[in-house]
Nucleic acid binder design. Structure first.
Lengths: 237, 237
DNA sequence: TGACACCCATTTATCATACAATTATGTTTT
DNA sequence: AAAACATAATTGTATGATAAATGGGTGTCA
């Protein structure tokens, strides 16, 4: 399978993304404070040693995510925090570089508790035949890995399972959570699963309910997973 | 108060945003199908009659929202639907221009039912003193308008109330919903409120619970609002 | 025949420069 | 004092050139 679909929009290789990432870091860390006017384009070009073209594309990228707002004559301003789109996986990726990861992880868990049970319920009602096949294959893999544990493969399958749930809701507004969840898995949860922490039975309950088309049971099962599982805080090993 | 904070990122005046909007329309409407390679930069420049600079900034904007992905030699491709960030208010604004609005409205309502009760619960627990003051002022306005109805002002206050709930959660991941909700209000719900449809008592229950710091009651009250209210489908009067 | 290294053409990526549009600020005029 | 105006600073757009990336073709060799 091509890895095209797994690629993150705006390859990290490109210059303007690297610069955007650096500016984002300064904003997210508070080095640049909210509502502050950042240096002019020419100044930043010199600081980064890049052309105006590349710098402007970086600024446009950050503008699109709600971090900046440019106006002629007045300059480019850091927008207030409530305009930052934390549900953008690229931005989330940058956030992960800053820390404090523990707080972010807990906040995300709160979001999962709100959204994921409902996503499971919708998936139970709306998943297509094709999506059910994918879900079956992925759960099968999880089941195998539960008895023959492999941390890396488990994390991958676990992530894919929850991702498929979001994709199976048949609701456009739930789709973005699939990517956000993947980013969080890779950034925070990746190394938090250990043998014995697979929660395979909780996952089985979700899987079974979705396949049976039982929305209420799927919702409850996913709630149970998020409450009972021994999801750990990220460890920096 | 300056209207700076109400501005949408990337003024609609700028050329590259206009072009991005037009390309987005073609993608969202299916005129450009998923995984399709769009014409080369030079071709598009001629089609739109703009410079490469402006076109590239437009493409970068769409890339940032998950609609496009560019690679040297191969070209710029329309990404598959599950990469489109529907939780971006600018993209949502473009979606609103396409329709079919009825389906989108219902999908969004499903999202609200998942996320808003939990947001209300978090707000009850975490709202700051300052946020409680804002919430009080806004609800007071709603209460006044309920007995002395004015459609436009009511919609504004209603929107502000729910927006404040998201901002009061103290959770970064709930913040973006504030803007998304506002966009939806302006695009879809704006003309759906009529006299008698204010649900003032349901709103009062949410407000009271949040001010009392009763998370469970706030969650339940918001659930009631979304289930019992006579939210209507958008009417095209 | 097939695998591998190499070259080539196409497309995006970046750079450099010039000019236009916007608007806060200060200045002049009434 | 108020209003109209001019100025300067900054972003917005245009243009042309060069660099980098890469799919596809070509040829070599086993």
């Amino acid at each position: 399978m091509s890895n095209f679909f797994l690629e993150i929009a705006g390859s990290k290789r490109s210059l303007h993304v690297q610069v955007a990432r650096e500016i984002a870091r300064k904003i997210l860390s508070g080095e640049l404070s909210q509502n502050e006017i950042i240096p002019s384009e020419m100044t930043l070009c010199e600081q980064f040693g890049i052309s105006r073209t590349a710098l402007r594309e970086a600024i446009k990228l950050l503008t699109s995510k709600g971090l900046l707002l440019s106006r002629p004559k007045v300059g480019t301003r850091v927008r207030s925090r409530d305009n930052w789109n934390f549900l953008d996986s690229q931005l989330l990726d940058w956030v992960a570089d800053i820390g404090d990861n523990e707080a972010i992880y807990l906040e995300f868990l709160a979001l999962r508790k709100a959204i994921e049970p409902e996503a499971a319920a919708l998936a139970a009602s709306n998943a297509t035949a094709e999506q059910r096949i994918l879900l079956s294959a992925t759960f099968q893999k999880m089941d195998d890995l539960a008895s023959n544990f492999n941390a890396e493969e488990w994390t991958e399958a676990d992530m894919e399972f929850h991702r498929l749930v979001f994709l199976s809701t048949g609701n456009n507004f739930f789709l973005p959570f699939a990517n956000v969840l993947c980013t969080m898995f890779k950034s925070f949860i990746g190394h938090s699963s250990e043998k014995g922490g697979t929660c395979i039975e909780e996952h089985r309950a979700i899987y079974t309910a979705i396949m049976a088309g039982d929305a209420d049971k799927a919702r409850q099962a996913n709630t149970n997973l998020l409450n009972n599982s021994n999801h750990r805080l990220p460890t920096n090993n």
